[in-house]
Write a protein that binds this DNA or RNA. Structure first.
Lengths: 149, 149
DNA sequence: TGAAATCCAAGCAAAACAGTCGGAAATAAG
DNA sequence: CTTATTTCCGACTGTTTTGCTTGGATTTCA
């Protein structure tokens, strides 16, 4: 029940991009340094993000990546699903044609998986990069950083 | 972001046990047949469940497993955490001493992971096996089974 | 005594994970 | 025009996790 590094690094990197939104292209090298992620590995992640139109790239010297939409219009859910695939605790709630639910009894456990899936969706689909920028402001203003523990 | 077969089979098996609560020991062979799970693999799962006192065993012929507490007192969360370990989308919200959060910026993404974790906890910690038995009654009463789709 | 069950320890193939490596192509700056 | 910078692309690889299987030992009821 954990996300892989693709999803975790990807969200960090997208948030990094959001903090530099409006300042022109950001080079992977800088994101990699700030977030302590292998640059080559980040390349793979950004290839996926670019193909799904969450970012756009500028090639060549002084190039880099930019958000393809303002932070208000990019949800955590879009980022994570792009990098992790569809979210759900079991195949039978992700893939309609799963063969795990032949038994009628198992439909009840499926109900549990569905509830988990929906509660995760609720969080990730209602949180945008702009919301995260707001969160960061609040964290920065609170000197002892206690409220989020 | 998926549970492994241990968690998924484990919940199915525990629900199976719950449906036979009060009828004496249930043999793994029967659970395995009903839920279409390898019997030997189920053994491993039940070894874990037994060590964490969610079930008790009766050895020998006519033996089997029983819930160690009534279905009202066993939550989905207990079962899943026993079999999957602590739940959370990233190490930094599961393991306090994780080294992933050195950068202050990353605390914001951590806030997202925490919200996901809490919303999953809310579901699994408030659902008991007794709730699932109730769900099954509702499903059985609804002939066309449409409400849970 | 024997069948039915849990208990226990190992082993193992396949898949997923988390990268690395080497170079090609594009572009801005000097 | 050249060079440094940067994205782009594809292949490869070691490690870990997953999802079992196998083979037996032990307990207990009939």
């Amino acid at each position: 029940m954990k996300f892989s590094t693709k999803g975790r690094y990807g969200l960090k990197a997208m948030f990094d991009l959001a903090t530099h939104h409006g300042e022109g292209p950001v080079a992977l090298k800088n994101i990699a340094r700030r977030q302590e992620i292998s640059e080559h590995y980040l390349e793979q992640i950004f290839a996926t993000l670019r193909r799904s139109k969450l970012v756009k790239s500028v090639r060549g010297a002084q190039g880099g990546y930019l958000l393809n939409n303002p932070p208000e219009q990019i949800t955590v859910g879009e980022i994570i699903r792009t990098l992790e695939g569809p979210i759900g605790p079991a195949d039978c709630v992700v893939d309609k044609n799963s063969h795990e639910c032949l038994n009628q009894d198992s439909c009840v456990t499926r109900l549990v998986w569905t509830r988990i899936q929906q509660s995760v969706n609720e969080v990730i689909d209602t949180t945008t990069l702009a919301d995260m920028l707001e969160d960061q402001k609040r964290i920065k203003n609170d000197e002892n950083h206690m409220f989020y523990i």
